[in-house]
Design a protein around this nucleic acid. Structure first.
Length: 313
DNA sequence: AACTAAGCCAACCGCAGCCAA
DNA sequence: ATTGGCTGCGGTTGGCTTAGT
């Protein structure tokens, strides 16, 4: 049965989201909540398909998102979970509050894969790579787009199945899953690894970027830099750049009436409904309940300029 | 300073699964 | 049991940024 396209693509906008679009989407979800993504663009006045709106919201605009590089512990968790679950990014993301599947997938492909290879571990199987004497390294470099020959080709599902079912390989984490989905972590791939052990213990860096401490990311906004007149639509009205993310441009912030000195919860309550924010208080991920996110991450910022509320007001 | 290559990430595409009619 | 609509997921790509020459 032929599937209809998810939306009529004629006249629909694609590509990076503008601050104006973000604003519309936030305002819509703020007043209506998340429902019927197909209807969202029409109701919110957006020339986007529902899918695009959902993606933008879940990957960028959600208030509970934790931005910035993954911490060391998060990376290790991703590796452990990947050993168990394979490329089931959404499942993996469900164990990392504030992280999206897309973010984890990107981080895996750009950072973790390389690190694992450096450590002599096949990122696909989480088993030791063949020694360089057996396979010439340039051809073996998957970054060149050349996957190594056997280990035998397995489909995505086969690969996942294999990883989940075969649990007593040397580097395999032994996470046992109870019926209610709880994961009891026993050993990590790193525990049994003595190859490059110093790397594991000392050099498993997060790209030399320190983890941002809460006191570092809470910005008092006492020093509003003399930004160009906010009424000027020149720079702030343009679409967000990829580096800045741009989900909160100065225009958007103006429109949402952010205060120059703010309390994050205040901001949240001004942007999102009480019902909505309260739904974030407890985040249950497959049996793992974490601290209420808004308490855990009073203000989640990163190198991302867009989160520096103070400097752009 | 200019050019090129590599890295990175937001967004798109298409399929799978779920569910209601 | 079948059909059709919707959402979620994973793979892929386009374009911007950064590093190297």
């Amino acid at each position: 049965m032929g599937r209809q396209p998810c939306c009529d693509k004629v006249g629909l906008k694609k590509g990076p989201w503008t601050a104006e679009e973000d604003k519309k989407l936030i305002n819509f979800i703020r007043t209506n909540g998340q429902c019927c993504w197909r209807a969202v663009p029409k109701l919110a006045g957006l020339l986007r398909c529902g899918k695009s709106c959902r993606l933008r919201w879940t990957n960028y605009l959600r208030p509970d998102l934790k931005r910035g590089l993954l911490s060391e512990s998060e990376e290790k968790m991703v590796i452990d979970l990947h050993a168990q679950l394979g490329n089931r990014w959404s499942k993996i993301a469900s164990h990392l509050p504030g992280r999206t599947d897309n973010e984890i997938k990107n981080h895996w492909n750009t950072h973790i894969k390389k690190k694992l290879r450096k450590m002599g571990i096949d990122p696909l199987t989480h088993k030791p790579l063949p020694t360089p004497t057996t396979i010439p390294s340039p051809e073996n470099d998957q970054d060149c787009g050349i996957e190594p020959p056997p280990p035998p080709p397995a489909t995505e599902s086969e690969q996942s199945k294999e990883v989940v079912e075969v649990v007593d390989t040397p580097l395999q984490s032994t996470i046992t899953e109870s019926k209610d989905g709880d994961k009891n972590r026993a050993t990590s791939p790193f525990d049994s690894m003595d190859v490059n052990n110093d790397f594991v213990n000392n050099d498993f860096c997060i790209d030399e970027i320190p983890v941002i401490e809460p006191h570092e990311i809470l910005m008092p906004c006492e020093n509003p830099s003399p930004s160009p007149s906010s009424s000027s639509s020149s720079a702030s009205a343009t679409a967000p750049t990829s580096s800045s993310g741009g989900s909160f441009s100065s225009n958007l912030l103006e429109d949402l009436e952010f205060a120059t000195t703010f309390d994050y919860n205040e901001i949240l309550s001004s942007i999102w409904d009480d019902d909505f924010t309260s739904s974030l208080d407890v985040y249950n991920t497959d049996g793992i309940t974490v601290e209420p996110l808004l308490m855990q991450f009073p203000l989640m910022v990163s190198d991302d300029e867009s989160w520096k509320f103070d400097s752009i007001m």
